[in-house]
Structure formats: structure tokens, C-alpha cells
Design a protein around this nucleic acid. Structure first.
Length: 283
DNA sequence: CGTCAGGTAGCCA
DNA sequence: TGGCTACCTGAC
């Protein structure tokens, strides 16, 4: 059991903001597959209850040892961010396993969440190890080197991503991934982008969600829309320009700003019209 | 049936 | 650099 103020952590926002795919909600419990673990966790006010992992794991995995107030203070730059913070307060960046995160986001390109989930589950069933919790059967994410059957990868409905997964499985390992942690943001990103199937967006996701680069600012379609509207007078600008602007504007914790804005844009401003109305204060 | 979805590689100016 | 387009697949 962990006690943490609701204002400083929100399990639902943290797990449902798209940074992790292998989660399942069953009534008030979240069943989570991550880092070789299969555990369940729920939040009741200021209390976190969990089975299958210990306090040390939970504290680390959910970044509970980060100074949340300090982070919010740094990104709270304007009325837009303030509103995103108010609505999704308690959202934290997870500390995921870099390998699992890398493969997951390679799978995410030009896809959607249900499909990504399905691919990752099939890959785990085919190449991972069985783990049980409460008689619920599940599979750990396959370790580097073990996703080595191209036909099986393809039959997980990975499509054109199959070759990226197959190649990455051959060339990448945990040690190399971990060595990126001590590099500069730019060097680490360049290294990741050497992998086929890894571009700016996927690299930034891996850097932010698993390698500790809190300044990484993944630019996807939602972030692009909301950033253009709020900070570029609704003009079309390149992803690179958006990223540079965000890094400069939000600073060391730009990644937290990205997640909050992403949630806000995706959940509440689905249509461009709503987005515009919101900016004009008419929502 | 076309379009589109949390992108990227490859090609060309 | 900047601007295309094809790419697996499945849900509208």
C-alpha cells in the first residue's frame, strides 16, 4: 500500500494517457503488464493498493519519487496549460522498460490503440513467458533476441512493421538501450533513429517514457493540431518547429506538458471546431 | 468501396 | 531541409 495525495497522483490519467498499451481495466482494478511483471492496482482517494509487485516497484514505475509540484510549476506557462493541468492533474510519466517501450512504439506507427494492444498481446503470447495473477493467465513481454520468427511476427498482424520488429530484435539489446540514458538528448535520439521504423515521434516516446528524458516532446497528430492552434495562430508548421518551440517554451519537463495537452486535445477537443471554441473561451 | 488511423523510409527538387 | 507517397490492416 502506498499513500499519495490525489492531487499529486492519478492512476487513471497516468495509465490511460497512451504512454502504455498493455493495461486492462476490470471494474476498479487496472491489470498491468510491464517490465516482466503482471500486477493489478487500484486507487482509492489517497491510497494505492496493488498485488503482484512491491512498494519499491510501484514508487519507481509510476515516478512517485519525482517532485510533482516542481514539475507543474515549470510547465505552467499560460492559461491553456493551466487548464490542462487542472483537468488532468496527477498524470505522471511512467518509467517503462526501454525494450518493451521501443517495440511498442514501433508497432504504434500509423495505427490505433486497440490494434496496438492486440499486436503486443499476440507477440507476448508467441514469444514471452506465462505469468499468472489471481488465476488470470498472462504473458510477459518477450526479451530482446527472442522475437526471432518473422512469419510469427507477421501473423500478429504487424503488417509493414514486421521487418522493423525483426531487425530491431536482432540488432538491439538492453545494455545498449541503457547506455543511451547517459547521453545528451540529441545523441540518444540520433542513436534510436538509426533503427529502421524509428523516426522522430517514436524516438521521442522511447526517450520520454523509458529513458528518463523528460524534455522529449513527441509530436503526433493530436499534439500537432493543438500546438498549431495555441501557439502558431493555427498555421501549419513542421513537426520539428513544434518540437523546438515546446522544448524552449516548456523546458526540462516538456514531456509532461505534452502528455497533459495530448489528453486534453484527444479527449475533449476531438473536432477542430471544439478546439477553436475552447481557445476563444467559448466552451 | 474509399478514407483514415498516435509514422517512417525512400525518393526527388 | 521540405514535400510527396506507399505501406499492412481493420474499422467506419
Amino acid at each position: 500500500m502506498v499513500n499519495i495525495k490525489l492531487k499529486k497522483f492519478n492512476l487513471e490519467h497516468t495509465l490511460e494517457c497512451g504512454q502504455i498499451f498493455r493495461i486492462n481495466r476490470l471494474e476498479e482494478w487496472y491489470y498491468v503488464n510491464a517490465q516482466n511483471k503482471f500486477f493489478k492496482i487500484r486507487q482509492n482517494g489517497n491510497e494505492l493498493e496493488y498485488h503482484g509487485v512491491d512498494k519499491k516497484f510501484v514508487t519507481h514505475f509510476f515516478s512517485l519519487n519525482e517532485d510533482y509540484s516542481k514539475i507543474l510549476k515549470k510547465i505552467d506557462r499560460d492559461k491553456y496549460m493551466r487548464e490542462a493541468i487542472e483537468r488532468y492533474r496527477g498524470l505522471r510519466i511512467l518509467r517503462q522498460d526501454p525494450w518493451e517501450c521501443l517495440i511498442s512504439f514501433i508497432c504504434s506507427s500509423a495505427s490505433n490503440i486497440p490494434r496496438i494492444k492486440s499486436i503486443l498481446n499476440v507477440l507476448s503470447e508467441d514469444f514471452g513467458k506465462q505469468i499468472n495473477l489471481d488465476k488470470v493467465c498472462n504473458y510477459s513481454f518477450p526479451i530482446p533476441g527472442s522475437i526471432n520468427n518473422y512469419k510469427k511476427i507477421l501473423s500478429a498482424k504487424t503488417g509493414f512493421r514486421a521487418k522493423y520488429i525483426f531487425e530491431t530484435n536482432k540488432s538491439m539489446n538492453i545494455k545498449t538501450l541503457n547506455s543511451f540514458r547517459t547521453m545528451t538528448y540529441k545523441s540518444a535520439k540520433d542513436e534510436l533513429k538509426k533503427l529502421n521504423g524509428v523516426g522522430d515521434k517514436v524516438a521521442d516516446c522511447v526517450l520520454l517514457f523509458s529513458l528518463g528524458f523528460n524534455q522529449a516532446f513527441p509530436v503526433d497528430t493530436w499534439i500537432k493540431k493543438v500546438m498549431q492552434l495555441l501557439y502558431f495562430d493555427n498555421e501549419t508548421v513542421s513537426n520539428e518547429k513544434i518540437r523546438d518551440y515546446a522544448l524552449n517554451y516548456f523546458g526540462d519537463y516538456a514531456g509532461y506538458a505534452q502528455q497533459l495537452l495530448f489528453m486534453f486535445a484527444r479527449n475533449e477537443l476531438r473536432t477542430p471546431n471544439r478546439l477553436k471554441l475552447w481557445k476563444e473561451g467559448k466552451l
